[in-house]
């Protein structure tokens, strides 16, 4: 090759294939999206994305209605609000209405149910409510799952047979049955028993969300326990021996030497487990917890726009799981040795 000449072959041999591959990737993505779009046209599906935002955030009209019949006796302005006093047949009621929205004058005769004033207010839609429930359930279950998993993991490697066998039994029972069945057991079996007992003692029932959190936490705890065990066992035996030789007790050695080192190693598998947990929370809809999936199902039933809404639901789950995975990466960087 002479200096200065750069043929197509040279281009292909150096950066060319890389550029072509990147180009092919985007062509592929476009083909999949486009193909789906045209396929939906073929089955006469009409995309109505504009209907989706109202399930995130919507303007609600709030009307103040009179509950008695009578005459508007006084209008008293108090800051932004106007206090409307309706007086009739021996009764009197006072309603507070925002100033600009006032629809009546002094002396007007009002029937029960008449609108005294109305105004509009932004409200969060059902999808955001569902997302919030999913987030709440997941966070609680993750926290409980960590505590449960940590203690079970430690019990799993204990020399005490009672502790060890309890841990093994728990782990095997939970890992050996489907989460869906466990959720049913938590709600329809344990829930019935517990709520009846609580009722008998006059304490009132627990809402389904607690059983949902318990089911997810207990499920995740079993997997976390195995992750914790593997993490602890991956730390060289010499670390424990060195700690003990300095007079530290077993719990002190665990607390100061083994667990901090194990924590780093178990972060990636732990992240995977908790991403699973967020996604598994979608099963809780079956016990009347209106989390994101159930909320989406309800919206689909009313709008008959399943294509848009299920995509939106998937995207919202992705937002949660992606945020978690970013957070764990941040933790990994922060706890890196020497960092």
């Amino acid at each position: 090759m002479t200096k200065g000449s750069f043929s197509l072959t040279d281009y292909l041999r150096t950066r060319g294939w890389r550029h072509i591959s990147i180009f092919l990737f985007f062509v592929m993505i476009a083909a999949v999206v486009g193909g789906m779009y045209f396929a939906t046209l073929k089955v006469d599906y009409i995309w109505r994305w504009y209907r989706v935002p109202q399930y995130f955030y919507y303007k609600d009209t709030i009307e103040t209605k009179a509950e008695i019949e009578g005459e508007v006796a006084t209008l008293v302005t108090k800051g932004d609000q106007v206090e409307v006093t309706v007086r009739g047949d021996g009764e009197e009621e006072t309603y507070s209405v925002p100033g600009q929205s006032l629809l009546v004058n002094e002396g007007d005769f009002i029937y029960s149910g008449d609108v005294l004033g109305s105004y509009q207010k932004w409200k969060v839609g059902i999808l955001i409510q569902g997302l919030w429930v999913t987030l709440k359930v997941s966070v609680l279950a993750v926290l409980l799952g960590i505590v449960l998993g940590l203690f079970t993991g430690l019990a799993r490697i204990s020399n005490n047979p009672a502790l060890r066998w309890s841990a093994i039994t728990y782990i095997e029972l939970v890992r050996g049955s489907p989460l869906l069945v466990q959720i049913f057991i938590w709600y329809f079996v344990l829930g019935t028993v517990i709520n009846n007992l609580l009722d008998q003692t006059g304490l009132g029932q627990l809402p389904p969300i607690w059983y949902g959190v318990a089911a997810l936490a207990v499920f995740a705890g079993a997997y976390v326990a195995e992750i914790v065990r593997a993490g602890i066992q991956s730390i060289h035996r010499g670390q424990m021996e060195a700690a003990r030789s300095l007079g530290m007790t077993y719990p002190q050695s665990m607390r100061y030497i083994i667990l901090p080192q194990a924590f780093r190693r178990i972060l990636p598998p732990l992240a995977g487990q908790f991403i699973s947990l967020i996604k598994d929370s979608s099963l809780l809809g079956i016990i009347a917890i209106r989390e994101l999936t159930k909320a989406t199902r309800e919206v689909v039933t009313t709008t008959l726009q399943p294509f848009e809404l299920w995509f939106v639901a998937a995207l919202l789950y992705l937002v949660l799981t992606f945020a978690l995975s970013m957070f764990v990466q941040y933790l990994e960087r922060r706890t890196a040795i020497g960092g």
Binding site: H236, G238, Q239, E241, A242, A243, S245, G247, I257, P260, Q261, R264, I337
Partner: peptide, 14 residues
């Protein structure tokens, strides 16, 4: 009351 030094040092790596 007893110090121990190991063949593989066993310093706390974190």
């Amino acid at each position: 009351e007893m110090g121990m030094v190991f063949q593989s040092f066993n310093l706390f790596r974190h």
